[in-house]
């Protein structure tokens, strides 16, 4: 009994302290999240490095990623081709470097779109309540029942793969998750005195939503965006591996592995390198995402 009441009391204390503590500025938050743990620091450097590689791909790649050469097929690694060549004589390292553009762009783009639409749906449902809430929540629940990858495969199956289709596919797959979080946070924020005060003062609904609700539910949405850029990269890789993502001859890490698999008797470097690239980036982003989550919600990770 005493234990439970102590826990309650300490929870109250924590809440009080949090209420009193000044909001940490962006710089302090960044320092605390990124710099505190060595693993997060390394992960941050890795992500920055990959972004730089993607941005400067045309300068960094030693060869044209699309140029085929019948004289150069299935070469093992050498000074000229660090990771060898594939069955079309294309330089694997160059394809890997250019492939990072596709992978990272989906990783960044889709979570942003999903966050936008998810927040829109979630806030609408949470703020309006009633029948609007019931319908939106119902659809969210149904879509949440599907794993994101499966949802992505099923939509891509129907749509076919092109750049914007993949963005649509990933956005649809991630939107329900954002909507659910935005809805729950909105319902909590709606009860706050400042929102009630705004309503009483006759502030218009859109203004309340954009000025008072959205800024106050932003934190968990940002965390989700960080976590889902990792998933987004992984899912795009899977779709490209299945042949319904980035279409050949354009390189992406997933279709480099796909090409590698059909040529695995000749050279295994494309598979090894492509998979390693995906793993490292997803790992680095997940480590950062975990740190952000621990920073915003220290209670969950005991």
């Amino acid at each position: 009994m005493t234990d439970a009441s102590t826990a309650e009391a300490s929870a109250e204390l924590v809440a009080e302290r949090e209420a009193l503590a000044p909001e940490p500025g962006f710089r302090e938050a960044f320092a605390q999240v990124i710099l505190e743990r060595p693993s997060t620091r390394i992960a941050f450097v890795v992500v920055v490095l990959f972004i730089l590689i993607a941005v400067f791909a045309p300068l960094l790649a030693p060869h044209d990623p699309l140029r085929q050469s019948i004289l150069q097929i299935n070469r093992q690694p050498s000074w000229d081709h660090w990771l060898g060549t594939d069955q079309f004589g294309r330089d694997v390292l160059s394809r890997l470097i250019h492939g990072s553009q596709n992978s990272l762009i989906f990783g960044l783009l889709s979570p942003v779109f999903a966050a936008f639409f998810g927040t829109l749906l979630g806030v609408t449902a949470g703020y309006m309540g009633g029948i609007v809430d019931r319908v939106i929540s119902r659809v969210i629940d149904m879509l949440m029942a599907f794993p994101e990858l499966l949802l992505a495969i099923l939509i891509a199956a129907a749509l076919g793969g092109s750049f914007w289709n993949i963005v649509v596919v990933l956005t649809v797959a991630f939107t329900p998750g954002f909507a659910r979080v935005a809805r729950a946070s909105t319902m909590a924020v709606k009860q706050e005195p400042y929102v009630e005060a705004a309503v009483a003062a006759g502030v218009s609904t859109p203004r309340i939503i954009f000025r008072h609700i959205v800024p106050n539910i932003a934190a968990p949405i940002v965390v989700l965006m960080a976590l889902w850029s990792a998933s987004s990269i992984r899912i795009e890789a899977t779709l490209s591996f299945l042949g319904i993502g980035t279409q050949p001859p354009n390189p992406s890490w997933g279709n480099i592995i796909r090409d590698g698999l059909s040529n695995m008797f000749a050279t295994q470097w494309p598979i090894a390198a492509g998979g390693l690239a995906i793993t490292i980036v997803v790992l680095a982003i997940s480590i950062i995402g975990d740190s952000v989550r621990d920073f915003l919600d220290p209670e969950t990770n005991q």
Partner: peptide, 22 residues
């Protein structure tokens, strides 16, 4: 568990296939 989250399953499958079958 962190690595398990980051490695794509088809990549792990391809590696197992290359090492143990091929």
């Amino acid at each position: 568990s962190l690595i398990g989250y980051s490695v794509p399953d088809f990549y792990l499958g391809a590696i197992l296939l290359i090492v143990f079958s091929l």
